[in-house]
Every structure is written in C-alpha cells, then in structure tokens.
C-alpha cells in the first residue's frame, strides 16, 4: 500500500496560496471559495489520473526490441548478456518464441552461495570471506531453464498501465513480458516504463 501511495501524484498537494493566486489570475468575481476550488482540483486530478492509468496500454510504454534468452542458454551466457546490456532481468523463451519464464538478478542470488544468500551484498561478503570459493560455483553448469521464475507473469499488449502497476506491487517484481495471443514475446514493460509513460513527453522544468 505504501508503495502505491508514493506513486500517486495527487498527493503532491497544491497549496492554498496556489489556489488563491490562481483565482486572482482570473479577473472577475468567482462565485466559489478557495477550499471548494481545491477540492474540485483534487477530484479532477484523480479522475485524470484514473483515465490515464486506464487508457495507456502496455503497447504504449513497452520496449519492443526486447533482449531474451533461450531455455537452453547456459547461465554464464545469461549473466554475460545481462551485464552487456545493463539489464537486471531477461525473459526466457522456447524455441518458438513463447515466453517460458523470467530471470532476474534475484533468481541468480537465491541459487548462489549456499546459505540463503539473497542480495548482491551478501554474495560480495561471501566472496570476500573466500571460504567457499566462488559463490557462483553451484550454478556454473546450469541453464536458463533451471533458475527462471516460471510460469511467467505476462500481460497482453492491451493491458492498462493500472493493471501492470498492480502486478508489480502485488508480486514484488520489476518487469513483466508482453505477449501476443499465442504467448509469444513481443515486448517488456519495466517499473521505469510505467512511471515514465505519461510523463515522457513533458517539457523540462524551468530553472
């Protein structure tokens, strides 16, 4: 819940002075109190937010040139690809392009270094202690299919931004593959894409 609230731009409150100054900008007598204007503004903003969250679809914000790996791709290649493209997660596809799962950094962490390591820092610590050799040893010979999260959560191109945001927060994930009707990979939407979507075309702030 807290996560969602931080997203909500309605909470960036407009001040009483903003309203008062705006009312002064409109010459002539306005038959309404500043408090009512503020309430109206808040409600209108909420409606606009709802409308945008529901009218912008996955296809509008997704990255279409999506990098993916095969189920049979060795993990060392998966790691290399993720490093090379600077991505923290990658979809895993079958031979025919159907999405079979998703691999994120977290999936690597949770299989590495023995005792329930879950983060980069814990791995680094294990590595520096050097007692157990390379923490990646246990998965050196494995392939993408062995560690991917599966079945994958995927959305279709017409899924609204609102639903995608909910998938992220409910499942504590950061990206979701976009598939066509047959389940084939056509794109990916990350948390950043969702946030950036409606704001992408905004003018920069004046200094």
């Amino acid at each position: 819940m807290a996560d969602q609230k931080a997203y909500n731009p309605v909470d960036i409150e407009i001040s009483d002075d903003d309203i008062y100054e705006a009312m002064k900008d409109i010459r002539g007598y306005l038959d309404i109190t500043p408090a009512d204007v503020k309430e109206l503004y808040g409600l209108a903003y909420r409606h606009a937010y709802e409308r945008i969250a529901c009218s912008i679809k996955a296809r509008d914000v997704m990255t279409a040139q999506v990098i993916s790996v095969k189920k049979t791709t060795p993990l060392k290649d998966v790691a290399r690809i993720m490093a090379e493209y600077g991505i923290s997660g990658v979809p895993v596809v079958d031979e025919d392009g159907t999405v079979a799962g998703v691999i994120s950094e977290k999936d690597f962490f949770s299989r590495m270094g023995g005792k329930g390591t879950k983060s980069f820092m814990s791995l680094l610590a294990a590595c520096m202690e050097g007692k157990e050799g390379c923490p990646a040893d246990p998965i050196r010979a494995e392939t993408a299919a062995d560690i991917m999260s599966s079945p994958p959560l995927a959305v279709e191109a017409h899924a609204p931004l609102r639903d995608i945001g909910n998938i992220f927060s409910e499942n504590h994930i950061n990206r979701v593959p976009v598939v066509d009707e047959t389940g084939r990979l056509i794109g990916i939407v990350s948390r950043t894409d969702v946030l950036r979507g409606p704001l992408l075309k905004e003018r920069p702030c004046s200094p």
Partner: peptide
C-alpha cells in the same frame, strides 16, 4: 469555517 474569502476584484470589474 474552513476556507478564506475569495480574492477582491479589480477596479474595472
């Protein structure tokens, strides 16, 4: 009361 009086109008108004 919960709000303040709306701003005054100008002389031309």
């Amino acid at each position: 009361g919960a709000s303040k009086s709306p701003p005054p109008v100008g002389i031309s108004e």
